[in-house]
Design a protein around this nucleic acid. Structure first.
Lengths: 359, 359
DNA sequence: CTGTTAGCGCATTCAG
DNA sequence: CTGAATGCGCTAACAG
């Protein structure tokens, strides 16, 4: 197939260029006969319009750019898939950027996106710093949606799961099962120097919405309050979002000899690492410790014991994010969208002092 | 930030438009003083060039489009990540399309990619049909790389893992462990009506390279031959690439009462489903049946028993694929790249008649 | 080294 | 309803 332009099509169809353009853009004011001729010429030449040229002319663009911390983990893979499928449905292209949870990379992504003059932007910031840069660098006029974070930029729609209530539900469930010393493993993309005190500080900060873990911590605290319990800083830990991190964090936690009867993890991978760590120390789950993950990915059924987890509608977030940006492009701001999270109970949690029948 | 064009920058810097263009494109022939002025004007206005316009003019484009069956599974997520990171390093944008393993979607993806006049294309076809369409629809001149498949289009580089030798190694290992009735679960994106006979037919077909499972089957057969064994069609099964499929396939396989002592699965997820199915029937792994997966993803350590798996260098494939397409853009065809696969032995495989100490 | 002139492929005025 | 003329923002070819 050779490169064929609108001029070629016009010549072959025996009409002018604007007429071809009108057919291409499905304008109504074009004679049926000519329309037919044009369509034949298009089919014959296998012509496809040059989108670069089109968008130079119109100043818009059918590219939606999306910046995510990563493409792995159930949340972001699902989000990406929902976004990609929805873009396809609407004839949009999706340009992807992965910051690897790193501020400098996040900024590089922003720079690249900015230069691309995308029709729309989806952004999931890694930190308040990169968020600031985003705000200063990206035109207010570009239709922008924040994914999986809340309350960051005014007048910009945020599509996010209800982490507060999700974690509240999980914590309350553990409390109802009789657990009182529930460890909370907060997930962060960047963790240097973070500790429990710092966490509590962040909770009061204005940039709280950047960190989903802070909302979860909020839900955790809310649930504790209902049971007249205070937060024990010694039960608060920081992890990344992977297996190794869960494994190492639990190992360190056990070494600190702090008493606990349950643990809430940043996601399923962390939880899987935690399970392994407990197993190695011959601590029985759920007999001695209950473990809860987040995301409810496929590994929840593969882990032993199967993992209780808080489901996050990742694919749906991806869908809604694209629909929201389309809405923005069409000039209407649909506002924030908060999606529910659901606790899925499996075998890694049980009532305090529960005894499995011997294996 | 408002939309500022090259004209604005030129005006502010007090130079002509081409001079700004020269600075932008790092041409050497520009006076230091003027260059400085231009750079200041750029900084002051926070100007970023309109890439759409640039690429209309040059006819090229810094967008690499990639069509994959899915973004999940270890292979494709890793591939995507390798591709995205490498694009970033080279200031390229990555536009992604997911066919969901479906021919019509695959064709839709091709149509979209075609219209985008990408600078480069990465394609992982789902079937011979969509591959044919690709060949007819996409300009031969567009730098194109085939990912994770081999021998499909002449003069187009293929970057792929050595499935033949990878599966040969896995099979040989099982044979050396004394297994003689090794089931082979071949993975396909589209499976309607596929059976063992059809599989053997495909093995002789010209489109073999479209299906990685056929190469693996080849490796499987090669290893059997070395032990003077013939393929038993009754040991050949078709699965998709997920947990459910592995679970159901093994359930059906067990119901057929065919004797077997090991099974090779299309990927780790399938293997995890298989493990579950065996567990439910109280069949001990690895005592009674050895199980091998493909991909060597994070779940290999989460599954019980931990999963022996054939590692696939997915991230590397993504890197190499982009480097290859860049090479193509620069006018040199580096040819095919075949990457090694490695067998990682864990606890789901053992010698025939092995006995675990009682759990 | 710099500015003037031209044109990429397309969509949008405006006459007719 | 149609075609001729104009320009989106940028880079390439040329002259000075």
């Amino acid at each position: 197939m050779e490169k064929v332009t609108i001029v070629d099509v016009a010549r072959i169809a025996g009409v002018s260029v604007p007429t071809v353009s009108r057919v291409l853009n499905k304008r109504q004011n074009v004679n049926k006969v000519l329309k037919k001729k044009v369509e034949e010429a298009i089919a014959e030449t296998n012509y496809a319009p040059n989108l670069n040229a089109r968008y130079t002319r119109t100043g818009t663009n059918d590219i939606i750019s999306i910046i995510l911390p990563t493409f792995e983990t159930n949340l972001f893979t699902g989000l990406l898939q929902g976004a990609a499928d929805t873009c396809m449905e609407h004839n949009l292209r999706l340009s992807v950027y992965q910051s690897n949870g790193n501020i400098e990379n996040d900024i590089r992504c922003i720079d690249m996106v900015r230069a691309s003059f995308s029709g729309g932007l989806i952004y999931c910031p890694v930190s308040p710093d990169s968020l600031e840069y985003f705000k200063s660098a990206v035109s207010q006029k570009t239709p922008t949606v924040i994914a999986s974070r809340r309350g960051l930029i005014e007048n910009v729609p945020h599509v996010y799961p209800d982490n507060i209530s999700g974690c509240y539900t999980a914590t309350k469930y553990l409390l109802q099962q009789g657990h009182r010393r529930i460890a909370f493993f907060a997930g962060f993309w960047e963790t240097p120097g973070y500790d429990a005190d710092y966490l509590m500080t962040l909770l009061e900060g204005k940039t709280r919405g950047v960190y989903s873990s802070l909302d979860r911590l909020q839900g955790y605290i809310d649930a504790l309050k209902e049971f007249n319990l205070d937060v024990q800083k010694s039960l608060l830990r920081i992890t990344a979002y992977n297996y190794e991190s869960g494994y190492e964090s639990m190992k360190a936690f056990l070494a600190s000899l702090i008493d606990f009867d349950a643990v809430i993890c940043a996601n399923d991978w962390v939880a899987a690492g935690v399970l392994q760590s407990l197993r190695e120390q011959n601590i029985l789950v759920p007999d001695q410790v209950s473990v809860v993950g987040f995301d409810d990915g496929a590994i929840t059924n593969i882990a032993r014991p199967t993992l209780t987890s808080v489901r996050q509608p990742s694919y749906q977030i991806g869908q809604r994010v694209i629909k929201t940006v389309i809405s923005l492009i069409n000039g209407v701001n649909p506002g924030d969208i908060k999606l529910d999270m659901t606790l899925i109970v499996r075998n890694s949690t049980a009532a305090k002092n529960y005894r499995t029948r011997s294996v």
